[in-house]
Nucleic acid binder design. Structure first.
Lengths: 193, 193, 193, 193
DNA sequence: CGATAAACGAGACGGTACGTCTGGTCTTGTG
DNA sequence: CACAAGACCAGACGTACCGTCTCGTTTATCG
């Protein structure tokens, strides 16, 4: 009968972002793993009960705070032809992932290896959106005659975006514009001689 | 001077594999995260001290047990032409990752998001090997005239293997032979129309 | 102005007695300590607010429910001579204390060690009455010439009743008729040889 | 294989006594009920685990600290004739119970209403000793011809000591020498006229 | 071959966080 | 405006592991 307190909700999300070091008064980079519910409660001036009442797990709080409330969306430009739009988008994704935001995303992917619920949540709140955008872009490429219309858009998207996630998670090379350009070039024309 | 006990070492590695559910008397699916040093010590009939003496972290034990001692290497066939060899190798990788082994690899990648030491260890014990094999295969493709010789072999390898890791980590599609074939086809001929 | 709901009051007292296991649909032996305001509220179909509005503490509710509303008074027979009346009364007290009712009384005495308010309440609602009855009985003994008229009736009452409370609280012997008789005999004639 | 730390044990018992306000740097009177394991651990500079490792409950710690380690025994003088020795002993008990020590004893009796284990422990560590001493004293009275040799020493002890516990728990009168004397007089000669 | 020094099992220890529980207060409709 | 419903802060509960630290007790060289 009593409504949920929006103040508490905001304080919890804000405290989470601060502890993760992505926004506001930045605490030095706590990882998602080391982030504790108790620390969030303390910083938010909220009791643990309140957090447990509304979220099932630490990961759920982080997804709500980071993905839903905070993470800037990378937009796809519609004023450019397909290939330029693709390079532009991949570049902006790569730039985003190169910073602190990328680290948190990597940690969320990590968490989702341990909990089916987290994986499901991450798909619902993060992944589905981004995949749809990528597929729409590929579709546009097909419409513009730049992409083979018989290909599976899903696989095409994978071919282009997967290398970015590999670098994000394995840290085996720089996430920069040149990387983005090379990937697009190779994916479009193929690597056969 | 007393030498390190090989018995203890083996017991620890064996207990670790059993707890992870990949070998021997299988405990039902403990994840790397939930796996504890205390549980390993207990099951191995060894004291915690002994584990801490020889390994820096839980992840180091798991890498030693799982990657070094246990994980079957996927071989690259030399009796097939490049493209067939690539498809064959990717298929065997995909098959391996589709089972319990893939889950543990995913969890190790997850752990490495939280610890630079684990990442470094994982590169040294797992990644470098596999990358070298992939690059050698690409190189062979260039030698056989199947791959554009001006391409960066590293990027070519990424284009082919990254989608596999994406599916492993995001579980957004089946890891099967058909997937392996499609990836190779697309990567070689490109997706441009 | 809305009057206090008699329905709520009755439901609260009834729920309290049930939870204590002394009346009605008996929940198995919750002690006063383990009894919670929330449990009472839930069982009574009443909100916690309502309980806190009318009672200061859990103990106050229990005293109201158990002592005031429920606890059967032990009557002093006037048709018997003093000594027989005393034995009869002590026997009925002892019988009452031997059962579930005695346990709750013991727990109320326990609670009163922790709160001056509860002690005061317990005196006002339980103790004063019983002491008055005991003193009146002693007085009657003096009038009948059975008790030394120079003695302090208060102390005489203590001599007779204190052993009962000792057994109630320390559980170091049975609370039965034989005990009641022995106490009266010894208190009257003394233990000197 | 590793011995229990006597340092920790002493620190825990000492901290408990201090928090109860009976010894050393006295914190203002925490009751047994309000005393928490966490507070003991904090003040003793010890982890909660260590307390839980060696004691089953808060009450067990308090009994160990207060009854076993701290509580001064009231001695029975053997250089006085029976009646004087009894009055002297009862007086010293009464004096002890009139202060802070009495409050803690009362609270332990309270706790034992809620837990059979605590009651058992309290009997074993506190009650049995004291009862034995009382019975021995009564026995001496019989030997000296001061007490009826056909009486049950247990009941005689109850007659004398029970009123003290009544006053301790009900606080319905002063615990002083005069009370002790009156009780002895009445118990010996009886209250009949 | 017996001393000796490292490796070992056992497990106590100070910590930290967990997720749960209850206390007591406060807020928001409803009747 | 009393009430139910229940959200809220506070803080203790008892548990699980962490990584460190004694302890004796094996053992495998080395003097």
């Amino acid at each position: 009968m009593v409504a949920r307190s929006e103040d508490s909700r905001q304080a919890i999300l804000q405290a989470t972002l601060e502890l993760l070091g992505v926004k506001g008064a930045q605490e030095p980079g706590t990882t998602v793993q080391r982030l504790t519910i108790e620390a969030i409660a303390k910083r938010a001036g909220v009791s643990k009960t309140t957090i447990y009442r509304w979220w099932d797990s630490k990961a759920a709080v982080v997804i709500d705070a980071f993905v839903v409330e905070y993470l800037p969306r990378t937009v796809v430009r519609t004023d450019l032809p397909f290939r330029e739009a693709l390079v532009d988008h991949l570049s902006s994704v790569v730039r985003q992932y190169a910073g602190m935001d990328g680290a948190v995303i990597a940690q969320l992917i990590a968490e989702s290896q341990y909990s089916a619920e987290t994986l499901e949540e991450l798909h619902r709140r993060f992944w589905d959106d981004r995949r749809d955008a990528a597929i729409a872009l590929v579709q546009r490429g097909m419409d513009e005659g730049a992409i083979d219309p018989t290909a599976d858009p899903n696989l095409v998207a994978s071919l282009v975006y997967a290398p970015v996630y590999q670098r994000l998670l394995f840290k085996d090379g720089p996430l920069d514009d040149s990387f983005a350009q090379s990937i697009v070039s190779m994916a479009l024309r193929g690597v056969a001689s």
